[in-house]
Design a protein around this nucleic acid. Structure first.
Lengths: 243, 243
DNA sequence: CCCAAAAGACCTGTATACAGATATCAAAAC
DNA sequence: GTTTTGATATCTGTATACAGGTCTTTTGGG
């Protein structure tokens, strides 16, 4: 296991430490000790170090002035800005897609996702479809970010989306029984408007709708922030946002 | 020299390798050998490796599938998208600044830069003020990115700006004699409009002007790309953009 | 003269050793 | 009881060793 094999140890360390941070396995402000992680994960310090450096670039860690890394704590304002930024970036992807045109294949793919979400939201006796919705929603946003054909844009969206509270499906309210929450209905309407605007080459509309769509996520965050400890239990990513 | 001292070796390696890439010291596509760099810089492989990983995150390097790193080559389209993205991000910073308001101290600082640029552009017998202009222009853009008060936005602008061809002062035409090029006059007018819009809390205008301002950089790039080898000599950063 | 195969040089990814600096804790001084 | 100080344990940043792939070149065969 050397030379490449996709740097197996580093990848493993990266995933493990990221999970540790997101699942609240470490207190923000507490320095992550490299030997400690190395022993806990059964990996040597070198890949651990590489993973820490990368997580710092991702924004999940920050350097301790005196050396080493610690989990980054976000203010509510920063979290909101990250969501706003996602809206701006997705809006840009949508606008460019409208202006430059989209390969039919991609439009087909994203339309299929829209259909699938519609199907999911039709009244049905099946049990909570939220997990499925979240997956489809994530796929919709992934496809959207690719519609512009610009890898640069796609990369930036991917970056900001990696902040857990800025992800498209971050704080979806769990629906009571089999009732579809209003916000999901609204979200899907925005999805459709977005795709329609791109099809019609209406760049400004596409951009505006994408931004407004991100406002849903912001409202969800603000609402969830009210929830105190119970919300924190349902959404561990909240631990990153200082209350 | 250990524990911290700002990771002296890593910082040194980072700067040295970045310079090597930007000054065209390495051919794109040619793999950078860690032992080679280590010997050339007199630094061990560990800090070299850290620097390479970071430059990969910055987008200046890409991984070779079989292992290692090589300088990334950008297409013209990617370069254009990066500039467009800078416009979008600066536009967002400007809009948020207008919407949320700006501390007077910051407005004062950016206004001082505007005055300095005006002074520079007044007819004068002194020799080429371009270097000075570039410094002031960079400062203007740095201050602008901070006006929103959002560190998240600021970070992203900083990131995209680190791509040499997307930087605000990337491809300014060298003025003949002491004649101020038209594009600089136009740019400064846009600077003023931008700051005025923010002062008047006109968010949409501020955003639009910032985007249009980035178009100047795009035009400069496209123009310079015509220039062939001679342009490549004047702007080494062009080597990163495939012709 | 060209091509294939094998050997050797070289490289990456990982583990570990080491030195200097920092954090911690206990004992002593006030 | 509080604060200072010293000793110890621990950590980070750096260098280096090592194992297993990869690239290059040379050699042998056609």
């Amino acid at each position: 296991m050397s030379y490449n094999k996709d740097a197996a140890q580093t990848v493993r360390a990266l995933a493990a430490i990221r999970d540790l941070i997101l699942r609240g396995g470490v207190e923000p402000g507490e320095r992550l000790s490299e030997p400690g992680l190395a022993e806990k994960l059964g990996i040597s310090r070198t890949p651990i170090r590489a993973a820490l450096a990368r997580l710092e670039q991702e924004g999940l860690l920050e350097r301790v002035p005196t050396g080493g890394h610690m989990p980054r704590r976000f203010t509510l304002e920063e979290a909101i800005d990250a969501i706003e930024l996602r809206g701006v970036l997705e809006g840009t992807a949508a606008r460019l897609a409208a202006e430059r045109g989209v390969e039919p294949r991609r439009m087909l793919a994203i339309n299929r996702v829209l259909e699938a979400i519609d199907a999911l939201m039709a009244p049905s006796p099946t049990n909570s479809p939220l997990d499925h919705y979240m997956a489809l929603n994530a796929e919709f946003h992934a496809l959207l970010s690719g519609l512009s054909g610009s890898e640069t844009i796609e990369r930036e969206i991917d970056r900001i989306t990696r902040l857990p509270f800025a992800a498209p499906s971050a704080f979806l309210e769990r629906p009571g029984a089999s009732v579809v929450p209003h916000s999901l209905v609204l979200a899907q309407a925005q999805h459709r408007a977005l795709v329609e605007a791109i099809s019609l080459r209406e760049g400004a509309r596409a951009e505006a709708v994408a931004r407004e769509h991100a406002r849903l996520a912001r409202r969800n965050l603000e609402q969830v922030m009210e929830g105190g400890d119970e919300a924190l239990r349902r959404f561990p990513a909240l631990a990153l946002v200082a209350g």
